[in-house]
């Protein structure tokens, strides 16, 4: 009897909090997404699918597809940079490795508004790149680099890169290095060893990295807001706009729920296949 009460006392306060302040609000926007919009914000309970239909309009759907495109390009680019970095770092001697890991952590923990903003100094009309190029004489007038889809891509890759390095690094690190020696002893060359041992065993880390880069990128609105222009708006900008400016809450909710469904599918797939290995812990 006593064990029962302890069992419940431990779990109730935190999960009651999460049920009321996390699950319930998401159910609330689910309800709002089917409700009828009123002018000046607000909603009237009801059942309509018009907000979802509106979301699949050409204009918004195009922005949604563009966001998915950015999320994919960011994931691919970060993976291409992060995997070699993680691989290189994990084979260093332990004191060098420790220092390099701290170097990865510093940008990871730096306020991401700052990390995004730092590119304004570099890509701006009067920024570093234009100054250098003009000084050297390669160009006569400044290039338009800021507020383009190029600058958005750079900003996204920049802010997400550490999220890809860390889980891959952790999974290569966990790998039993004697397997690599065994493979070499048995006559495999480096490429064969990489293909048959290192890559498959580091795959859970790669998947974790993909999830942790793809999903936040999908919901981004700060990077396109600071570094992008009208043609690089992402779905996060539309949501922000609907909630804070246009105040069409049901429409904003419908977009949020659509993204939430996509995220849930990815997450359930991930937890089913990789969740038991506790990969999320690699971040903390």
């Amino acid at each position: 009897m006593k064990a029962f009460s302890e069992k419940m006392t431990l779990i109730w306060p935190p999960f009651f909090w999460l049920l009321v302040l996390f699950i319930l609000p998401i159910l609330l926007i689910l309800i709002i997404s089917f409700s009828i919009s009123q002018n000046h914000g607000g909603y009237e309970l009801g059942f309509t699918l018009e907000h979802y239909a509106h979301f699949f309009d050409a204009l918004y759907f195009k922005i949604f597809l563009r966001s998915i495109g950015y999320a994919i390009s960011t994931t691919v680019l970060t993976l291409l940079i992060a995997f070699p970095m993680a691989y290189y770092i994990s084979f260093r001697e332990s004191h060098v490795k420790y220092k390099l890991m701290l170097l990865v952590l510093i940008p990871f923990w730096t306020n991401f508004l700052i990390r995004t903003f730092s590119w304004v100094n570099i890509l701006g009309y009067k920024g570093l790149i234009n100054n250098v190029l003009m000084y050297v004489g390669i160009i006569d007038s400044p290039l338009i680099l800021l507020h383009t889809s190029l600058s958005v891509n750079i900003g996204l890759v920049y802010s997400e890169l550490p999220y890809m390095i860390l889980p891959i690094l952790a999974s290569i690190d966990r790998l039993d290095k004697s397997l690599l020696e065994a493979s070499t002893d048995l006559g495999a060359n480096k490429w064969q060893t990489f293909k048959n041992i290192t890559f498959p065993l580091s795959f859970p880390g790669v998947i974790t990295g993909i999830i942790f880069v793809f999903i936040p990128t999908l919901g981004q609105f700060v990077v396109p807001d600071i570094l992008g222009g009208k043609n690089s708006y992402m779905i996060g900008n539309v949501i922000t706009n609907q909630f804070l400016v246009t105040r069409n809450w049901p429409f904003g909710s419908a977009i949020s729920i659509s993204i939430m469904v996509l995220v849930l599918i990815l997450m359930i797939y991930y937890l089913r296949n990789y969740g038991d290995r506790g990969q999320i812990k690699d971040f903390i």
Binding site: L21, P25, G219, T240
Partner: peptide
């Protein structure tokens, strides 16, 4: 699952749902 969700769900969704709440 409930415990892992706030880590994975995009912040913007957490933000707007709490705002509505």
């Amino acid at each position: 699952l409930i415990l892992n969700m706030p880590i994975i769900v995009p912040d913007i969704i957490l933000g707007v749902s709490l705002l509505m709440f």
